[in-house]
């Protein structure tokens, strides 16, 4: 589903590469933790999948497509197959839960009848039934992140990328978020989650890819966060 072939990324303003010769293969339906200290290249890894950045060297394949050969105007279609969740939720403060989720479908031109049908389903899937009319500022951090996950998942993407989704959430609430991500993973969606949260990684026992200074120093199935942290 996601293939990195010897990928190096050097940002124009920096000498040190953000990623250095990374080769990774993520299969369909896998759940992968991307761990490593800040600046180790986790975010760059995710941005390369979205084609927000282009690799300096090497190839990235996502959902069977070579991103280097993907023309710019087709990038939106790639992104429709990838859901994204961030540490800061990125909800629209002037829209309620339903509207926030529906926004993702509206802007890719889905018909209204379809939106009315699927949005409540997804809101329920992330455990927010009965809260569809709430505004983001009326929700807890955990609940806001569930809205963000619902929005990322509502178009049934093949891949879900999560960049520190529990970074702003207390540990007890984080478990709930992880359950939602796990549920999504069980529907066959490939999940790639960058995180610092050792407790979560250790409890889930999923594949762990550890980055340090832009290089993969560990790729372990059913792994833990690691002793060093």
């Amino acid at each position: 589903m996601i293939q990195f072939e010897n990928v190096t990324k050097v940002y124009p303003t920096q000498k040190r590469p953000a990623l250095n010769g990374v080769s990774v293969d993520v299969d369909k339906g896998e759940f992968v933790f991307l761990v490593g200290p800040s600046g180790s290249g986790k975010s760059t890894f995710l941005r390369l999948i979205l084609k927000e950045e282009k690799p300096t060297k090497g190839r990235v394949h996502v959902a069977g497509k070579d991103l280097a050969r993907l023309s710019n105007w087709k990038v939106p279609h790639l992104r429709r197959r990838i859901g994204c969740v961030f540490q800061d939720f990125r909800l629209l403060p002037n829209k309620n839960v339903f509207e926030n989720v529906a926004f993702a479908l509206e802007v890719i031109g889905k018909p209204r009848r379809f939106i009315r049908k699927v949005v409540p389903e997804v809101v329920e899937l992330v455990g927010l039934e009965g809260k569809g009319d709430r505004m983001p500022d009326e929700l807890s951090g955990g609940e806001q992140q569930r809205v963000a996950i619902a929005r990322a998942f509502v178009n049934r993407p093949q891949i879900l990328l999560a960049d520190e989704p529990t970074g702003n959430i207390d540990p007890a609430t984080s478990i709930g978020i992880m359950k939602v991500l796990d549920r999504i993973n069980r529907t066959g969606t490939t999940v790639v989650m960058a995180t610092h949260d050792a407790a979560i990684v250790d409890s889930m026992r999923k594949r762990v890819i550890e980055l340090e200074d832009g290089e993969v120093i560990r790729d372990q199935s059913r792994g833990v966060y690691g002793q060093a942290y």
Binding site: W73, P76, H77, L92, F103, A104, V107, I108, G109, R151
Partner: peptide, 17 residues
């Protein structure tokens, strides 16, 4: 920018944005 950022992310076409 918040809206357009999300639109970009969920794959809205450039024209639509």
């Amino acid at each position: 920018r918040r809206e357009t950022g999300i639109m970009r992310l969920v794959g809205a076409s450039n024209f639509y944005i």
